[in-house]
């Protein structure tokens, strides 16, 4: 697969604040690539640089072989962008809104008519054609904004927090829409701090925090690469000192990296071992006299992965003393 979006050592600094401190991304054509990170991690900055809206302080960014700095106009032609916050014009009907952006891309009248019809069908707004844009619901505006980013049939879509502010139903609809777009061959770069949203959708992710990419690649690859082991949860029928003794027992076992008592009394165990060793640990615990009510492997999901990855490094200071 060919790379379609590439950034190298992307840095954006505002006076004393560093928004991103060297972001490297490599996104193959046809992927749905998730940019995950907490608020303030640098997701929006990265997307805005790719969308030619911000100049990086240093570093390179390329889309479809065009440099974002040197050929912004070429980049804009292959790019559809949906910002995290966007407004709509008053006094504009839905079809006029799309017509306006289609004109901005220099589409001739016949093509505009056809594409507006197609896009309204795609985002399921065909019956809202004559409605004023400000009269649409938030979810509909979001879909209209997505449609506007598609008028020129771009190769790459940059979506900044597309699901924020949407109700669950609208979210599902959006997800379906993005899947459909992927089948149309679009490469989609999507940012979010809501992880489950991306997990079901993305083929690859990059986890960013404090302006750096902490891990990137296929979700399963990252899991394999970064996971110290699995997280086990044991519910022991004990409290106070006996619970503490149980925790101590677990902590002393081989392959156990950590053991902690959670607020609900469950002991969470960071375990490096594989499944047979997990079985052995449970057997030994029972044999050792611990009253274990439940014992399970915590579900591995992106959220957990994310917490693990971002927890690895002490958060990089984003303030640079100067």
């Amino acid at each position: 697969m060919t790379t379609i979006v590439r950034t190298e050592g992307l840095v954006k600094r505002y006076d004393r604040t560093v928004a991103i401190a060297g972001v490297d991304l490599d996104i193959a054509e046809g992927e749905i690539f998730g940019l995950v990170g907490p608020n303030g991690a640098g997701k929006t900055t990265t997307l805005r640089i790719l969308a030619t809206l911000l100049e990086p302080t240093s570093g390179q960014a390329e889309i479809a072989g065009w440099s974002v700095n040197r050929n912004p106009n070429e980049v804009r032609r292959v790019l559809g962008f949906m910002p995290d916050v966007f407004g709509v014009y008053d006094d504009m009907r839905v079809w006029e809104y799309l017509d306006f952006f289609a004109r901005c891309y220099g589409l001739p009248a016949a093509a505009r008519r056809r594409i507006i019809g197609d896009l309204l069908d795609l985002v399921d707004l065909a019956d809202k054609r004559e409605t004023y844009v400000q009269g649409l619901s938030r979810g509909m505006q979001q879909r209209l904004c997505l449609a506007h980013a598609l008028v020129h049939d771009p190769q790459v879509l940059l979506l900044d927090e597309p699901a924020s502010g949407l109700d669950p139903r609208a979210r599902v609809e959006l997800r379906e829409l993005l899947r459909e777009l992927r089948t149309l061959g679009k490469t989609i770069l999507i940012s979010s701090h809501i992880l489950p949203e991306l997990e079901e959708l993305c083929t690859s992710v990059a986890i960013v925090d404090s302006g750096r990419v902490l891990a990137s690649g296929r979700i399963s690859d990252i899991e394999q690469r970064l996971r110290v082991g699995s997280v086990l949860r044991a519910r022991v029928l004990a409290d106070g000192e006996t619970l503490e003794a149980a925790r101590g027992w677990f902590a002393a076992q081989p392959e156990v990296a950590s053991a902690a008592i959670l607020r609900d009394g469950t002991i969470e165990i960071g375990f490096r071992g594989d499944e047979p060793q997990t079985a052995a640990l449970l057997r030994d615990a029972v044999a050792g006299g611990l009253a274990i009510a439940s014992f399970s492997r915590a579900a591995s999901d992106l959220e957990e992965l994310f917490l693990q990855v971002t927890g690895h490094e002490e958060s990089t200071p984003s303030e640079v003393s100067s």
């Binding site: 969308a51 030619t52 809206l53 804009r76 962008f81 910002p83 916050v85 966007f86 901005c104």
Partner: peptide, 11 residues
């Protein structure tokens, strides 16, 4: 209205 960005990213 936060529409300028949408405009600036067009060619």
């Amino acid at each position: 209205r936060q529409t300028l960005d949408l405009l600036v990213v067009t060619p």
